[in-house]
Amino acid sequence: VAARSPEPVTPSLSFPQRREKIERRQQEVENELKMWDPHNDPNAQGDAFKTLFVARVNYDTTESKLRREFEVYGPIKRIYMVYSKRSGKPRGYAFIEYEHERDMHSAYKHADGKKIDGRRVLVDVERGRTVKGWRPRRLGGGLGGTRRGGADVNIRHSGRDDTSRYDER
């Protein structure tokens, strides 16, 4: 048996280096947050209150397949699948705008966890333009711990609770 050379050891960052890296990232996030404005995003079109966010979509799922799966809840105005700018490959999420808000609400209530092309999708409302103070996960926001379990475990600040404007109608 031939002796194998040990795995190369990558030096870990020292404490000052780690702190420097964290501070640099925080500065980047602060700069991006100043520039982030979902209301002036050219990709965000249509009525935010009629738009559904669909995540964990299989990379092989087509727009027409999404349309077939979600049209059962009502007529769809448009579907925007998100693709990587660099590679052109799907990012695994999409925005679906319905003709009527009640249809979006119905899809929001019933389609969460639906299996499409072998993957269970996550369905949620569009939060960027509808929930005041919400930030995307890449900027330190997102849902965080709001989907852990029952009402006693979940944090109720994300807009996904019983007092949501979607439940009033």
Rank of each mutant, 00 (worst) to 15 (best):
F70Y: 04
G142F: 00
K132H: 12
R138C: 10
G142R: 01
A3D: 09
R56E: 15
G159M: 06
I116E: 00
M35I: 09
E168D: 06
G92D: 02
P136Q: 03
N58Y: 04
V57H: 00
K65S: 03
S64R: 15
L33M: 14
K77D: 02
G159H: 07
R4N: 13
R67D: 04
G159Q: 13
D124M: 03
G118F: 09
G149L: 07
V1M: 14
R91G: 10
L13H: 12
G118A: 10
F70V: 11
G133L: 08
V29K: 01
K89V: 02
R129P: 14
T10N: 03
K65N: 01
S64L: 14
I22D: 08
E32N: 11
V123Q: 01
D152T: 07
D60Q: 12
G145L: 03
A48F: 08
I116H: 00
E168P: 00
R165T: 12
Y98R: 14
R135A: 05
T51W: 02
L13W: 12
R169V: 11
G92C: 03
K132G: 10
R138V: 14
K109W: 09
F70G: 02
R78C: 06
D41Q: 05
P42K: 07
D112V: 06
R56P: 08
A107W: 12
R68K: 15
R129F: 13
I116C: 00
G141D: 06
S14A: 10
K132F: 13
R120Q: 13
N154E: 05
P90A: 08
H157T: 10
V9P: 01
R129A: 13
V9M: 09
P38M: 11
E97C: 10
D103S: 15
E99Y: 07
D117F: 01
G142S: 05
R25P: 05
E28T: 11
V1P: 02
E7F: 12
S12L: 12
V153T: 08
G74I: 08
E23N: 04
E20Q: 15
R156H: 05
H39R: 13
D47S: 06
G133C: 10
R102F: 10
T10F: 07
V9L: 11
E126K: 07
K89C: 03
E101M: 13
G88E: 01
G128L: 12
S64Q: 14
A44V: 11
R68H: 07
K77M: 04
N31L: 04
D41A: 04
K85G: 07
G128N: 12
V131D: 04
G74T: 05
K34F: 15
R18E: 11
R120A: 14
R160E: 08
H39Y: 15
G92I: 00
G46K: 10
V54G: 02
A44P: 02
T10H: 05
G149A: 05
V121G: 04
P11C: 14
H100G: 05
F70N: 01
L33Y: 10
W36L: 09
M81E: 02
S5M: 06
G88K: 09
I155P: 03
I79N: 00
R78W: 03
E28M: 12
R24V: 06
